[in-house]
Simulated scan of single mutants.
Amino acid sequence: MAAPSRKQTLRFLSQLGAFILTRFGFWNCFSMLMLFAERADSKRKPDIPVPYLYVDMGAAVLCASFMSFGVKRRWFAVGAAIQLAVSTYASYVGEQVHYGDWLKVRMYSRALAIIGGFMRGGEVYRQKARSRSLQSTGQVFLGVYLICMNSKEDRMAYVEHIVGGEIMLTLLEVLFGVLALAFLSGWYIRLAAQVLAVVLPLVILLIDGNLGYWHNSRKVEFWNQMKLIGHNVGIFGAVLILATDG
């Protein structure tokens, strides 16, 4: 059997990224339900008032379902971006649950990157020319996410869990800074996405995946951390699309 050509490999990776990104809504809703069930024992409230929460989850599942089945994928990708933006804004202004500032940065920057992924990467489903405004806005959101990956808590986690200590931390800060600049400026987007597609799985595995550290040491709720892992996996899907389809 002949080895797959470069074009076939890129197409497979692009389709894999699309598969991950379009299913993000399902995992996000599931992890939110598990998080709110986890809070029920301590009588803590969900991030969004209950009547609106059902509407929000219904919209998320609807968009994810239509994208998964290939029905008007481009439009429902934009719809998913709008739904997540409204949900994130509602949870922020509602202030039903208190989060530390550093955790807010982690949560909202990842939500912003997913929104950017739907706006920028989601257009792999296009049958018409891409919208330049959606392209540039989505890229900026991904750039902001990369800047936020250099927060104090992230740096502490890198030092504790990645071999190389301060030297490796400095290299990572420079790398994320350069990648952020690429996304914010619109230069070398495909190359930046290819580099990020290699680095991000390591971050998910070595940093996000250390549930004991975040849950026990940083007091992040278990299912909130699982939700954040899902965000980064969704971002990885969007990055795969950009890396191969650009």
Rank of each mutant, 00 (worst) to 15 (best):
L13S: 07
I20V: 14
F24M: 13
W27Q: 11
F30N: 05
E38F: 10
R39V: 10
R39T: 12
A40S: 15
D41P: 01
K45W: 08
P49N: 06
P51G: 04
Y52F: 11
V61W: 01
M67H: 02
V71N: 02
R73I: 00
R73Y: 04
W75Q: 05
G79H: 03
G79T: 04
S87P: 00
A90L: 03
V97W: 07
Y108R: 06
G116M: 03
G121R: 01
E123A: 09
Q127I: 12
R130H: 08
R132E: 15
L134D: 11
L134R: 07
Q139C: 15
L142C: 09
L146P: 02
N150M: 11
S151A: 14
K152G: 02
V159D: 12
I162D: 14
E166W: 13
M168Q: 15
T170P: 00
T170M: 06
L171S: 09
E173D: 14
E173G: 13
V174N: 07
A182S: 13
A182K: 01
F183V: 00
L191T: 10
V195W: 02
L202Q: 08
L202A: 13
I204V: 11
L205V: 08
H215W: 09
R218K: 15
F222V: 10
Q225I: 07
Q225V: 10
L228G: 03
V239Y: 00
G246I: 02
